[in-house]
Design a protein around this nucleic acid. Structure first.
Lengths: 146, 146
DNA sequence: ATAAAACAGTTGCAATATGCAATTAATATT
DNA sequence: AATATTAATTGCATATTGCAACTGTTTTAT
């Protein structure tokens, strides 16, 4: 007999793998790498963000993000300005072009999740949604209280 | 009003991020890299596997896996033998030491998911489990039928 | 007020990961 | 028997990542 928590683990493992593939596919259409894509989306969501905040948000070293942002700037998708109120900070934003790329990525992901959602039996959708929320709460609780 | 599929997307996004952190922590205690850890677990689960099968299973190029396996061999966690029945193949297996590392990783992950499962309200656990299964079915269906 | 500490960001360095293409060796096909 | 296919390895190029050192800016402490 298999433990229920093991079943949970296995489901999540497989879902993660599938979603990883989606991520990979998304990459190829952007003309940017996956890391750059992730950074771009974070910047787009934030609107404007400093380097350390971006690094913290993404769980990566600031040096890594410094370079990734540099790449996005090179490609014309982002700009860096020094923060007038505190000149240690840079304010990272998307350019027009970066913003439309961001919107495109967001739309692509939304479309994907629309389709996924439709593939869940209609009578089960609300339950799945609630369950994902419960799942998120569980993993979040674990983080802070372990 | 936020679309339900967008809520789904956001939940999954955050869960993924949390689980990624777990993965990262798991890494540091192993003395091996995350990629090596993933490969080791795949080999451990398979018992014995060829390089191409491993690469296919993990969705990576066989050259990448060739090197990762080489690293695991170097560290004494895996062995490569040529398959007697078809000498083009190598049979990749874990050594004693690799196997106990594998078991340790599996145990760590199982313990983690046990705790997560306990953090889900008792009356909701069965529902969450069923929902994860439905979610997996949905993303799998999308893959094959899109 | 000035010296020291803390902080944000960048850059040099090293390790790892990854895919493609070419190569080698073994097996299957014609 | 010759050719094609397949499994694995290796050379090459690129990307990712973190740590540590360094610069410039702001905050804190004396």
């Amino acid at each position: 007999m298999i433990k229920e928590s093991s079943r949970l683990r296995e489901y999540i493992r497989r879902i993660q793998r599938r979603l990883g593939l989606v991520d990979e596919n998304g990459k190829s259409c952007c003309g940017i790498t996956l890391s750059q894509c992730h950074s771009l989306v974070e910047i787009g969501r934030a609107g404007a963000i400093s380097l350390v905040d971006l690094a913290t948000e993404m769980g990566l070293d600031k040096s890594t993000l410094s370079r990734t942002v540099e790449n996005l700037v090179q490609k014309g998708y982002a700009i860096r300005e020094t923060d007038a109120r505190n000149r240690r900070y840079v304010v990272i934003k998307l350019t027009e072009e970066g913003n439309s790329l961001f919107k495109g990525i967001e739309k692509g992901m939304d479309d994907y999740f629309d389709k996924i959602y439709q593939l869940i039996p209609e009578g089960k959708r609300a339950q799945v949604l609630e369950s994902m929320q419960l799942m998120l709460e569980a993993v979040t609780k674990f983080e802070c209280c372990q």
